[in-house]
């Protein structure tokens, strides 16, 4: 589904990602772990096209996307839930959700929010006319995931969806992501610090200093790896 090869990314002259390779197979959930500041968000931004890599290629659905702009990548079926959620603050919740429709390939003129969104995130239903910026952190996170789903993506890219959120909401978000995968069969690339959530994934990559240093099935996640790469 997604294949990143030999990626090198710089911020100015500081070398952030070094010869990085990573793949997300069709219908699987892949988790990327690593301590703060190793470059996880940078990698996801590069996948979305917000940062241009100096060398390396990114392929999505057997097609090179390295030179495409972010909006074209979104239209190809990559749904992005960024770190910090990036809800558009002075738009209502409903308008934020409707923006998610932009990524659909077939134009829909309907201004209705599909029922399955509310089934996943019931809190949103009563808040449709509130300003996005006025929601709490947990509500914004659910809105951000719902917004990405509105575009019917084939790959969902989640950057620390549980950061700064109370445990009960974390469980809700976890359950929602699991249900999304079961019902739609899409692939997921997840950056996560919570061990419980990490264990939901099929495969993990561990990152250190801008490169992948370990990977494997999450069922074989060893205590040593957990200690080294997760901030628990």
């Amino acid at each position: 589904m997604l294949q990143v090869s030999n990626l090198n990314v710089y911020y100015g002259e500081s070398h952030i990602l070094r010869d990085l390779d990573l793949g997300v197979p069709m219908g699987q959930m892949v988790c990327l772990i690593g301590r703060n500041g190793v470059g996880k968000t940078t990698l996801l931004k590069t996948i979305m096209g917000l940062i241009k890599p100096r060398t390396g290629t990114i392929n999505f659905a057997n097609q090179p996307i390295t030179d495409l702009s972010p909006d074209k990548r979104a239209k190809l079926g990559i749904g992005y839930v960024p770190q910090g959620r990036e809800i558009i603050p002075r738009l209502t919740v409903k308008e934020n959700l409707l923006l998610g429709l932009e990524a659909r390939r077939s134009r829909t003129n309907s201004q209705e929010i599909p029922e399955e969104i509310f089934a996943l995130f019931p809190v949103l239903q009563s808040m449709l006319s509130r300003m996005g910026g006025d929601l709490s952190g947990g509500q914004q996170q659910q809105l951000a995931i719902a917004r990405a789903l509105m575009g019917r993506p084939q790959l969902l890219v989640l950057d620390e969806p549980t950061e700064g959120i109370q445990p009960s909401i974390i469980l809700e978000i976890e359950a929602a992501v699991r249900r999304i995968i079961e019902s739609t069969g899409i692939s997921v690339l997840l950056v996560e610090q919570h061990l419980h959530f990490v264990r939901q994934a099929d495969w993990y990559y561990a990152m250190q200093k801008g490169g992948i240093v370990a990977s494997g099935a999450t069922s074989e996640l060893s205590q040593d790896v957990i200690q080294r790469f997760l901030a628990v």
Binding site: S69, D71, A74, K75, L91, E95, L99, G151
Partner: peptide
């Protein structure tokens, strides 16, 4: 109009949602 308002407030996120910012 919605697209214009979205891009005005957050250009990069709007692009990631599939809004043709150009």
């Amino acid at each position: 109009g919605l697209r214009i308002r979205a891009v005005t407030q957050n250009r990069s996120m709007s692009a990631c949602l599939g809004i043709p910012t150009e």
